[in-house]
Design a protein around this nucleic acid. Structure first.
Lengths: 107, 107
DNA sequence: CTCACAATTCGATATTTGTCAAATTTTATA
DNA sequence: TATAAAATTTGACAAATATCGAATTGTGAG
């Protein structure tokens, strides 16, 4: 029961995380990055090229750029520029923290 | 990796859940209900009186009412009227589903 | 060097959201 | 039944958000 005594700053940080996941396009971006992250469990190459994902979404490049920044600011993903391209990978530590919030004794 | 092939309707449903948790006051409401839910694991009385929580928040009754409806609509909590009062308990099934989204092979 | 392409920034706009005060409804009880 | 307390509904409004098109920047390839 990790969430019992939560500091106001934690509340704020966590709402920011959930807000980042509360938009359809942003959630799809995140899940896509998460999927790549899982797939490349054995191989250590867990990077994901954002350009590739873009095609599957019905929004323009400026909006994707904006959404990526929100996912990054929330701490959910870590981005890196590879030449012309932007890559992203999952911040596994944060995911672990989120998993704990939803882990209950009533399994 | 439950989230890989997710239907559009699922995406929408899940964004609604995260949106419900993306506001500070609503998250505090939810966590408070969750705390009661966990505490009363052995005893089967997992209900939580909303009036009691209200005092800890700095918003008025209409806003609390509105927030409770959002948590309910998202499926996170189940409410019931007990006389004059409103009680809420956690929808454990949904919490389990959320836990799965964040469960990763990279434990 | 320049061209093409990926990404970002900027400015604008329509929509959604959080909150409140006032009015209304529900329910227990004096 | 009359009152009070809890909750909800309604209507309003300011603030935040998602998205876009246009302009700009960064980068590798020819």
């Amino acid at each position: 029961m990790k969430q019992s005594g939560m500091k106001p700053s934690d509340i704020k940080r966590i709402t920011k995380i959930f807000k980042a996941l509360s938009n359809e396009n942003r959630l799809e971006l995140f899940l896509e990055i998460l999927k790549i992250n899982e797939k490349s469990f054995e191989t250590e190459c867990a990077e994901c090229f954002i350009t590739d994902i873009m095609g599957t979404l019905s929004i323009g490049a400026p909006t994707v750029s904006h959404h990526m920044k929100e996912l990054t600011n929330a701490g959910l993903v870590i981005t890196e520029r590879k030449g012309k391209f932007l890559t992203a990978k999952i911040n596994d530590e944060l995911i672990k923290e989120l998993a704990e919030i939803f882990s209950t004794e009533k399994s």
